[in-house]
Design a binder for these strands. Structure first.
Lengths: 107, 107
DNA sequence: CAATATATAGAACTCTGTTCTACATTTCAA
DNA sequence: TTGAAATGTAGAACAGAGTTCTATATATTG
């Protein structure tokens, strides 16, 4: 179904650096650079407790270890998974990164 | 000053995957795996407003764009930089990742 | 069996992060 | 030059995330 080829990690960083270089040398203007910046972020979406648990188990770590990776408490992870609290902001971003790139991406 | 050589990104992920494989095949026990997990995380430290601003300017983006990367509001970034609010938890983790690996690492 | 690791439970509390409005400055295109 | 857009500051009110504490239950392991 996906028409767009998924490139390996590193590509994104390279493209980004190139865009920044173009901006700094005046080839592209600030607005273009800004739109580029905002358009190539990994999409952040809401997570259900089930999804968070599945994600953690996919990475084969305990709640405690998972919590250490995200720099939050184990209790928070437990509450997320049970739907008692819902992660937001930076927590959501980290979960999205783990979902897409794995735990090692934020080690 | 640093005695330990800093390896390029990718190495960490590889080591991690290897450790997990060893664990899953029963070569190392769960406790060892856990200690390994907790010992190889990027250290998370507090940031002053100055440091956050310097970090953002190093990445050459506006507060708005920086905020988009972290999935927080531009106001939060502004308040961090002025010392009015102090990032914690997942926000701190993201800042540490940016500090060490650059903005592209969390794109 | 005893000790440890893991996960749940709930309650009280702190304070981040959000939201809103307003305003000053700078940048850039018309 | 003029006006629109981008950027950053400011403060206040608010919701709720994240912390902390204690207690309990289960499963695993030595």
């Amino acid at each position: 179904m996906p028409r767009t080829k998924i490139y390996k990690s590193g590509i994104k960083a390279a493209i980004h650096q190139t865009a920044r270089d173009l901006y700094e040398s005046g080839v592209i203007d600030r607005q273009t650079m800004r739109r580029f910046d905002e358009s190539c972020l990994t999409p952040v979406h809401a997570f259900t407790g089930e999804e968070i648990r599945a994600l953690r188990e996919r990475e084969a770590v305990s709640q405690t270890v998972f919590a250490h990776y995200l720099n939050v408490t184990k209790d928070s992870v437990s509450q997320w998974e049970r739907g008692q609290k819902k992660p937001a902001g930076a927590s959501l971003k980290l979960l999205s990164l783990v979902e897409r790139n794995g735990l090692a991406a934020i080690a």
